[in-house]
């Protein structure tokens, strides 16, 4: 066979680009390009998202100190077993759950109320929705600093308002000093930030409820309040579960608010006696103040497992409570 003649193009060309290399190009375009288009996402997510999570497990099993790089080596489950006797860890876990409860429950209930208000025929519809998003776009660092001023003991707005009702006039509340007061203050910041966002999620679901569902119920004479709890909430149940899971994942990783509520954020101590130190904050302190990355990694994994369990349990419970049982 002769090597000289490459396959000749047909004598009559329909399209000019039908050269051999174009064939190759078209074949690649069909077979290869799709993967090329999705590759950046998977590569970047693998390197900066998945790999750190997995590598974290390895770091957790080693001695890994920033101040003493030579002391590294396998340490087995030392970092994990240390968690069980670490009072700071249990204290932070307790704080995290306390603040989580104080923030999630009111947050989602109020979001439901506000969504119900927005789910009417209103003038300037869009502007009300944009308005409730003000806290969402406000940087959490900035708003927390406002609340830090708001909750100062002497001359703070919160104590002044309370004093109008005769509360704490002689002995103003030192918001940062106790667990209960600092938790309430921090929970208020979290609630303020996320109520509007969750309200829009609920609103979106409410507006996709078929109208005849309400019309059928109206015949039975359900008032607006009963309508909300008997019809609306069960109908938007998937989104309710979604927000519960979302705020579980977010709430258990709470970092910014307790961090900047502190009079000296750089210490990451969560108050003079760690009264509002959360797990995420403790991870930061152990890793970058105590310079013990191995232990911080173990703590991250513990938190990961806790989030997994709690999010799962919450999803189940919400499913039940918000009317999923009826199927």
């Amino acid at each position: 066979m002769s090597l000289t003649a490459p396959p000749r193009p047909p004598a009559v060309r329909r399209r000019p680009p039908d050269k051999p290399q174009r064939h190759w190009l078209y074949r690649f375009d069909v077979k290869g390009t799709p993967y090329l288009l999705i590759a950046p996402f998977f590569l970047l997510f693998a390197v900066f998202g998945v790999f750190p999570l997995v590598f974290n497990a390895i770091v957790a099993l080693r001695n890994w100190r920033l101040d003493d790089p030579d002391a590294n080596g396998w340490s087995g489950f030392d970092n994990f077993s240390r968690l069980f006797t670490d009072e700071d860890f249990w204290n932070a876990l307790f704080n995290t759950f306390g603040i989580f409860l104080l923030s999630t429950v009111p947050q989602l209930l109020l979001a439901l109320m506000i969504a119900n208000l927005l789910n009417r025929r209103l003038r300037a519809t869009t502007w009300w929705r944009v308005g409730v998003l003000l806290p969402y776009v406000t940087p959490v660092a900035a708003s927390t600093l406002v609340f830090a001023v708001f909750f100062t003991r002497d001359g703070g707005m919160a104590n002044w308002v309370l004093s109008l009702f005769g509360i704490g006039t002689d002995n103003p509340i030192n918001w940062r000093a106790d667990k209960w007061s600092s938790w309430i203050a921090i929970a208020m910041m979290v609630n303020w930030k996320w109520i509007g966002y969750n309200a829009l999620l609920y609103l979106s679901a409410m507006q996709s409820i078929p109208k005849d569902v309400y019309e059928a119920a109206a015949v039975d004479g359900a008032g607006p309040w009963r309508q909300l709890w008997r019809i609306t909430v069960p109908m938007i149940q998937p989104v309710v579960v979604f927000t519960v899971v979302l705020s579980t994942i977010g709430g258990l990783q709470l970092f910014n608010e307790p961090m900047l509520f502190d009079e000296n954020p750089a210490a990451a101590s969560g108050g003079s006696a760690h009264q509002y130190q959360t797990i995420a904050q403790l991870i930061y302190k152990v890793g970058w103040k105590d310079l013990n990355l191995g232990y911080a990694a173990a703590m991250s994994w513990a938190l990961f497992l806790i989030i997994l369990v709690v999010a799962g349990l919450n999803a189940l419970a919400t499913n039940r409570l918000s009317g999923g049982g009826r199927k």
Binding site: V47, F48, G49, F51, P52, L53, V54, F55, N56, I58, V59, W64, I249, Q253, A280, I283, G287, L293, A296, A297, S300, W301, L303, F304, I307
Partner: peptide, 12 residues
């Protein structure tokens, strides 16, 4: 929750 990988991300 990729936030939980910050320790390893820092090492990376």
């Amino acid at each position: 929750p990729t936030q939980l990988g910050v320790v390893a991300l820092y090492i990376l």
